[in-house]
Simulated assay, not measured.
Amino acid sequence: MLKGINLTLMMGTGIAVPVPKMVIDALTSVSVTVGKTQSGFQLSFTIGKNSPLQHSLLPNGFFDPIVTRVIIVVTINGKPDVLMDGIVTNHELSPSNQAGASTLTITGDDLSVIMDLVEYSMSYPSIPDNIKVITALAKYATLGVIPLAMPTNIPVIHPPTEKIENQYTTDKAFIQGLASRNGYVFYIDPGPLPGQSFAYFGPDISIPLPQSALSTNFDSLSNVDSLTFSLDGMAKKIKVYTIYDPATKKVPIPVPLPNINIVKPPLGARPVPVAKIETANESSKLAVDEAARDILSFLMTGSSPSVTASGSLDVLRYGKPLKSRMIVGVRGAGLTYDGLYYVDTVTHTIKEGSYKQNFTLSRDGVISNTPLIAV
Results as ranks from 00 to 15, higher is better:
Pro210Asp: 06
Glu278Pro: 04
Asp219Thr: 11
Lys239Cys: 02
Thr308Pro: 11
Lys264Asp: 02
Leu316Cys: 13
Ala280Val: 02
Ser304His: 09
Phe298Asn: 02
Ala213Ser: 14
Val288Met: 07
Leu316Arg: 12
Val288Thr: 08
Ala291Ile: 00
Ala309Tyr: 12
Phe298Met: 03
Lys264Arg: 14
Val224Lys: 09
Gly268Cys: 08
Ile260Gly: 01
Asp314Arg: 09
Ser220Glu: 15
Val288Ile: 00
Glu282Cys: 04
Pro252His: 08
Asn217Ile: 09
Ile253Trp: 06
Pro210Leu: 05
Thr301Met: 02
Leu209His: 10
Asp289Trp: 05
Ala292Gly: 03
Arg317Trp: 10
Asp314Ser: 12
Val274Tyr: 07
Ile253Tyr: 12
Ile277Glu: 13
Ser283Phe: 06
Asp245Ile: 09
Leu221Met: 12
Lys264Trp: 02
Leu316Thr: 12
Phe298Pro: 00
Thr228Phe: 11
Arg293Gln: 06
Ile253Thr: 13
Asn259Val: 05
Ser283Gln: 08
Ser284Val: 01
Leu257Val: 02
Leu313Asn: 04
Lys237Ile: 04
Ser212Trp: 03
Ser312His: 04
Pro258Ala: 01
Met300Val: 03
Thr216Glu: 07
Pro271Tyr: 07
Phe229Ser: 04
Lys237His: 11
Arg317Gly: 07
Ser297Trp: 01
Leu214Arg: 07
Pro252Tyr: 10
Met300Ile: 06
Gly233Val: 12
Pro271Cys: 03
Arg317Ala: 14
Glu290Leu: 00
Pro266Ser: 14
Lys236Thr: 09
Tyr244Met: 08
Pro258Asn: 03
Ala235Tyr: 14
Ala269Arg: 11
Val274Asp: 03
Leu313Asp: 14
Met300Phe: 00
Glu290Arg: 02
Met300Ser: 05
Val307Met: 14
Pro305Glu: 10
Tyr244Phe: 15
Lys249Gly: 08
Leu296Ile: 03
Ala280Cys: 08
Ser212Asn: 09
Val315Thr: 13
Pro210Glu: 02
Ser283Arg: 05
Asp245Phe: 05
Lys236Ile: 10
Lys285Asn: 14
Tyr318Leu: 07
Thr308Asp: 13
Ile262Gln: 04
Ser226Pro: 08
Glu278Thr: 15
Asn259Phe: 06
Lys276Glu: 14
Lys236Ala: 06
Asn261Gly: 05
Leu299Arg: 03
Glu290Thr: 01
Phe298Val: 01
Ser303Gln: 10
Ala213Lys: 01
Thr308Glu: 13
Pro258Glu: 06
Thr308Trp: 02
Tyr244Asn: 14
Ile243Arg: 01
Lys250Gln: 08
Asp225Tyr: 04
Ile277Pro: 04
Ile295His: 00
Gly302Leu: 00
Pro273Arg: 12
Ser304Cys: 09
Ala235His: 11
Lys285Gln: 15
Asn281Gln: 11
Leu227Pro: 08
Pro271Lys: 01
Leu221Trp: 10
Asp245Met: 05
Pro256Gln: 01
Gly302His: 06
Lys239Arg: 15
Ile260Arg: 05
Pro265Asn: 07
Thr308Ala: 13
Lys239Asn: 10
Ala280Glu: 08
Asn261Ser: 11
Ser226Phe: 05
Val255Pro: 01
Asp245Val: 04
Pro273His: 12
Lys264Thr: 00
Met234Cys: 07
Asp289Pro: 01
Asp225Asn: 12
Phe229Lys: 09
Phe229Trp: 15
Ser222Asn: 11
Arg293Ser: 07
